[in-house]
Design a protein around this nucleic acid. Sequence first.
DNA 1: TTTCGTTCTTTACATAGGTTAGTCGAACAC
DNA 2: GTGTTCGACTAACCTATGTAAAGAACGAAA
Lengths: 243, 243
Amino acid sequence: MTRELSLLLERKLERRDDLTPDEREALREVLAGTVLKRAGEDIVSQDALVDCSSLVVDGFCARYRDLADGRRQFTQMNLPGDFIDLHGFVLKRVDHGVRALTDCIVAMAPHSRLKVLTARHPHLTRLLWLETVVDAAIHREWLLALGRQEALERMALLLCEIYSRLEIVGLARDFRFRFPVTQAEVGDFLGMSAVHVNRTLKVLREAGWLTWDGADIRILMWDRLAEAAEFNPAYLRLERLPI
Amino acid sequence: MTRELSLLLERKLERRDDLTPDEREALREVLAGTVLKRAGEDIVSQDALVDCSSLVVDGFCARYRDLADGRRQFTQMNLPGDFIDLHGFVLKRVDHGVRALTDCIVAMAPHSRLKVLTARHPHLTRLLWLETVVDAAIHREWLLALGRQEALERMALLLCEIYSRLEIVGLARDFRFRFPVTQAEVGDFLGMSAVHVNRTLKVLREAGWLTWDGADIRILMWDRLAEAAEFNPAYLRLERLPI
DNA sequence: TTTCGTTCTTTACATAGGTTAGTCGAACAC
DNA sequence: GTGTTCGACTAACCTATGTAAAGAACGAAA
């Protein structure tokens, strides 16, 4: 069981650069047990000191920040294979919550173990560092989207990004994927009201760009979506560059 | 000269955690020379492989992303003492440009030297990692702002953040500071048109919350601004927590 | 089966903020 | 001097998107 979890982590880091047997061994020491979180539960609560980061094994979750009057913005989607709050390892105090959008299984990585790893394995440390830096690159893409792109462009970007990321971990192919998220939640990603999410989806559906039944999404015209979003997957850093 | 630069860097990292004499010594090896960039010039161009990160010694610059039709979003302000593109050290390919808003002096930190440092100094590595992670925390604050806050709230947030960050490095006090940036540039930060920046400033000026003459800003009612922005400096991670 | 709570969907209406098109003044070149 | 450029500022108008309200569809629970 724990063995399988380490493999998930190994495969994730190996997409970026080769690992030595020694480094693989070290990764096996990092994960403690797993925890099940129910849909709607908070995995991390806002404004807490943390001593543990976690790896999403199964399910969808999202990082969020709230305003006093209840306005909410999701700042990042976390898919299976993603490290949630790895930045918490160096930040110590996290400034936001993470919510399970569906039932989730997460594996814990205690900071004490990560610290041992970083003391002994500089290259592995840089790979973990890279993961947090890719998160920041995704943030920048969404800063552009929220600041300067319109509703339809943002929706297209979300679909392109989620499809691409799910495909990498084998959870999407042939332009189909499951995305079990309500329209209100999509609105919290895109910085728009649930009503406008609905309107925007109607336009996309009627233009024949996609179908969206329940949680099953099928993209019919990828090129149109990618063009509308000005989607360039470079920001996901899918390239393999030794570091 | 180079000695003074290292001191800037040392002081920056020491705000987060103590450094050993050994670590200080290592930092002195990191910076190569300085470069002068003129206002309006690009310090880093979009979508390039980078082999060097840089430290702002003097001046203001900003990271940006553009859309094909010219819409632009600044994703981060860089003030003196900030590491520009430290994330480039692990990311290798950067996805955005950095523009000098005023004449700037920047000190270069070649990645080859940073790599030597990370191989020998795990604690220092975590401190550098932390700097990139704080950048991401600031991104998240602005994702919330751009997604869910209104023009006036965002403007208030910008003023509170810039003042706080300038104060830390001794470039602001008594609620006064120089901010030599055009209203159009402010719009590119806040995701709004220059016209609306002007309107919003007029409201703030007439309400007596601030004065803004040329590049000289004076905040008259900090509490009002902070309340409107829901400004909580926690996201800047000013706390000192050993890592 | 009925009831209940979600979520999706639509309509009608309100408004924050964009766009366009200026004026004015300061700085600068010649 | 004169022209030129750039930024601050304003007004008129327009539209993308928010808000409020309600019905339809669906699954879960009883």
